[in-house]
């Protein structure tokens, strides 16, 4: 069963004054199949704290949605999972994130390697100004796969996986910038699939798309969860309700509630969750 996160009493946790007893308050699902385990994650941009003591276990081969008002830290949280957040030089973190029982903040764990396991799809379609083929083959190539026959196979398989092979199989060598926004985003998904990651992070992947393209991407997400664990940040509650198995609600850098999607939407335990999903703020 899911548990409700208790309201934090110490909202302004400072770095270094972390209280160990808070640890137990994190939401845990007693599910052996969690692929990412987050414990007591704090994050600061310089002196501004953006995440407070977030603890959460992400289930394997399911779709986990992260919702919350803008500025609540949901995108920051997502980008922490593949350490992209560290590209901002002033970012500091504390706490632990384990991917398949390995600590990703450990100095031995290479972020480049992590990112082949935990892929990412961004808010705005961001293909490289290269051909569709070169876009999809980018990941395998930078990780040392050079043989053309193998790359051909990977490209085909990834584009099929992103449900765009039929549309693009004759346009593989056209520049990806010439595609429509929806096609570009699916090429970006194919690009993420090409290295066969375990987890795919999606940061509001449909926010820049029209409704038809959005429907296609949502459909795709449903198919992808057969093979991948998906974490999707969305500002659209209907979307979260439609496509996710579990939903996490963030507010002001805290994880307020994390539960099965149906539960969370029909029977929220926290007043703030209820206020948010009923549209009282946000």
């Amino acid at each position: 069963m899911n548990k409700v996160m208790e309201e934090k009493t110490n909202k302004n946790v400072n770095q270094g004054t972390k209280k160990p007893e808070v640890k137990k308050e994190g939401i845990k699902k007693e599910n052996a199949n969690s692929i990412i385990e987050v414990n007591d994650l704090n994050l600061w941009y310089g002196s501004d704290q953006a995440l407070y003591e977030v603890s959460m276990d992400v289930p394997e081969k399911q779709v986990t949605a992260i919702i919350g008002p803008s500025g609540c830290g949901k995108s920051t949280f997502l980008k922490t999972l593949n350490r992209m957040v560290e590209m901002v030089p002033i970012v500091k973190t504390s706490g632990s994130i384990k991917y398949r029982d390995q600590e990703i903040f450990s100095s031995k764990y290479k972020e480049e390697y992590l990112r082949t396991k935990v892929g990412m799809v961004f808010q705005k379609p961001n293909p490289f100004p290269k051909s569709v083929y070169d876009n999809v083959a980018y990941g395998p190539r930078i990780h040392g796969i050079k043989k053309k026959e193998i790359l051909d196979q990977i490209v085909e398989k990834s584009l099929k996986g992103a449900a765009i092979w039929d549309e693009l199989k004759d346009r593989l060598h056209e520049n990806a910038y010439g595609l429509s926004g929806g096609q570009q985003q699916r090429v970006c998904i194919a690009r993420a699939l090409a290295v066969e990651p375990d987890v795919i992070l999606m940061d509001e992947p449909t926010s820049a798309l029209d409704p038809i393209s959005t429907a296609k991407v949502e459909e795709l997400v449903q198919e992808l969860k057969e093979k991948y664990s998906i974490i999707i940040v969305t500002h659209n509650m209907q979307q979260a309700a439609r496509i996710s198995d579990k939903t996490a609600f963030f507010l002001n850098g805290e994880l307020i509630e994390f539960a099965d999607t149906d539960d969370l939407f029909q029977n929220p335990h926290d007043k703030r969750t209820e206020d948010y999903i009923t549209g009282r703020f946000g």
């Binding site: 992209m84 972020e111 480049e112 990112r115 082949t116 961004f122 490289f128 100004p129």
Partner: peptide
């Protein structure tokens, strides 16, 4: 955005520069 895309694929800094930024 396209630099992010490259880093997100696990590319190193120099790979990103040589294969995405410079071209």
């Amino acid at each position: 955005e396209i630099k992010e895309a490259s880093y997100g694929m696990g590319a190193s800094k120099w790979q990103t520069i040589a294969r995405v930024i410079l071209p």
